[in-house]
Amino acid sequence: MSNVLTVARKEVQEGLRNCWVLATTLLLAALALTLAFLGSAPTGNVGVRALDVVVVSLSSLTIFLLPLIALLISHDAIVGEMERGTMLLLLSYPVGRRQVLLGKFLGHLAILGFATLVGYGAAAVALALSGTPVEAGSWTAFASMIGSSILLGASFVAIGYLLSALARERGTAAGTAVGIWLVFVLIYDMALLGVLAVDQGQTLAGGLLDALLLLNPTDAYRLFNLGGTGDVGAFSGMSGLTRTAALSPPALLAALAAWTLLPLGLAALVFDRREL
């Protein structure tokens, strides 16, 4: 365990030094603050549910941004270190490959978690300071959005590791990462929508549709946050979608967790077999 923490600590140290942490935090904070104050415009000065509006707009943005950031950090983790030659030296030390992978994961997760918490948290604090009254339910929705955003990031970090363990060259890993991002964030939903429109609910309905939604981590995240309790669901117009048991919040979180653990486990297997 100590080896895992040592590797994690070094990842964080590097992240701080090459400004990944700073850049990511600032980017997320800037976007969150912009949305917090622009987003409250439609509700006018009443603004009772300002934070709920922020949750809706911010989670839609998270779906695009966090997977991209996560893949950017992670796609280089294995193949990049192999190409630079740093992996050769690291693995000559009394440290297992799984410990290296897990350590990197914890380090990258810490970077991502810190950026999300501070960046999005800044928006919530700013709203509270500006005197906007916020209900307890909205705080819960906001907190669970931050938590699930980190989980979404974690699953894309794990997917990035799998690409990185499989790729022979850094360029391949980077290209595949872009492809994966496009598929999960844009193409998958468009294709699903197209099929639904053509199918008219003949075959693609009920359980199959639920399963297809769980097969994409960004959809699981979207349903978890936008279909959530109370006003958020009403604002997003997605409250009708989430009444089935298969897409209950625990099931959606479990899907996100599976999307983290499965790629991570596969990455460990592939990395174990790789020869230097």
């Binding site: 100590s2 140290q13 030094r17 030659g85 740093t86 050769l88 030296l89 690291l90 030390y93």
Partner: peptide, 24 residues
């Protein structure tokens, strides 16, 4: 190793401290 490489972002002391921790 031949052509030894280190992460460019860390200092020499930090790099060596990292490897020292791995060797206890």
């Amino acid at each position: 190793p031949e052509n030894v490489a280190f992460n460019a972002a860390l200092t020499g002391r930090e790099t060596l401290a990292f490897y020292a921790r791995l060797k206890r």
